[in-house]
Every structure is written in C-alpha cells, then in structure tokens.
Amino acid sequence: MSEIPTAKSSIEKELNSIPTFNTLNESSVFISEKRFKDHINLRLDISDDGNVDALGNILGVEVPIEPNTVNINGEVSVLWLGPDEWLILTTECYPNSMLDRLSKGLIGKVASIVDMSGGQTVINLDGPNSMNLLAKGCTLDLHPRVFGDGKCAQTIIAKTGVIIRKIDNSPSYDLIVRRSYADYLVLWIKDAAREYGLSLAK
C-alpha cells in the first residue's frame, strides 16, 4: 500500500515564484497561504434554542448571529455566512477533528456539516497597502470605520467570489477562496501589487 499522502496546496507553485523578503520596500504587501485544519460549512436552524446550546458547547464559542461578523475562541473561528450558515475554521494547533465532534455532537439535529478543507484555501495579505490592494478588485467599503476587526464578508475580488476576513489593523486580511479560483486570485494579486511590491511572508 502506498505511504500516507500529504495534502497539496492549490497555490504553492504560484506563491513560490514570489520573492520571500524585501526589506528595502516599506510599501510592500506580504502574502502567505494559511493552512487550517478544519474548514467546515455548517447549516443549522438556530431558532431552536437547543441547537444553539448544543453548538456552543461543541465549538466553545457562540455562533455569530450578526451578519458578517466572526466569533473566535482560541483555535476556533466561526464566520457568519448566512442566517443559518457558518464557516468554521480551526487552526492546525486545534487538537481534535472538529468535523468528527460536530458530526457526533449534532446527531439527531437537523444540520448540515460539510467538510470544505480541500475545496478552499486561505490567502493572507498584510501590510499598510493591503487595503488599497484589495480595493482595486473589491467593491466593499474596507475603511476601518466600516470593515473593522472581527468583520467578514462574502464578496467578489476581481472576478472571483471570496470571503474576506479582517484580522487586524496592520491591516491584515484573510481571503478565503475556492480552490479552483485560488490560482487566478494569486495571479491577480501579483499584478495588482506591482506598484507596492509583494513579498512572500515567512
């Protein structure tokens, strides 16, 4: 039998063509691919209080009810995607499989728990010009007054759908993109970043 295979990134090749560090250029935008352990698309009717409690117990954090916001507890982030839909991300440090925990914990509930870990990836952009770079392809108002920390939004960048998540005010953003479009998005970022410089963050 073959050895245990390793998961393959969809944008590794494109990212590796970006220089890794450019201390000369202060305007540079830093790009990296963030690996998460779980990407789970969760659908659940939260008009039932029992569902909310059960879910909160498993996740260790309440699911956000306010549209376009993120709730975080340690290694677990829950992003609002719709009135009954969330994206759950756990970092590589998270000890268990959230997919298993949800599947077992929500038995008997009307829920849809779908593994998306191979179907999307996360690209992080960081640096003073990262907001300007995004503005080139994104019609959202990204001003910190409007799109602050803890915000997320499903929208379009250039010609592909993405989920943008504001990480902090450096500013830093996570872009969650479908696997098949990730390569295009990196190409677009490389082009849009030319006037600022683009470095692969280590």
């Binding site: 698309n41 659908r43 849809s112 779908v114 870990s117 191979g118 179907g119």
Partner: peptide, 9 residues
C-alpha cells in the same frame, strides 16, 4: 440544506 462541494472533491 444545499452546499456546493464542487471544489471540495
């Protein structure tokens, strides 16, 4: 509930 999984598989 419907979820697009085209890219997942």
């Amino acid at each position: 509930y419907l979820t697009s999984v085209t890219d997942q598989w």
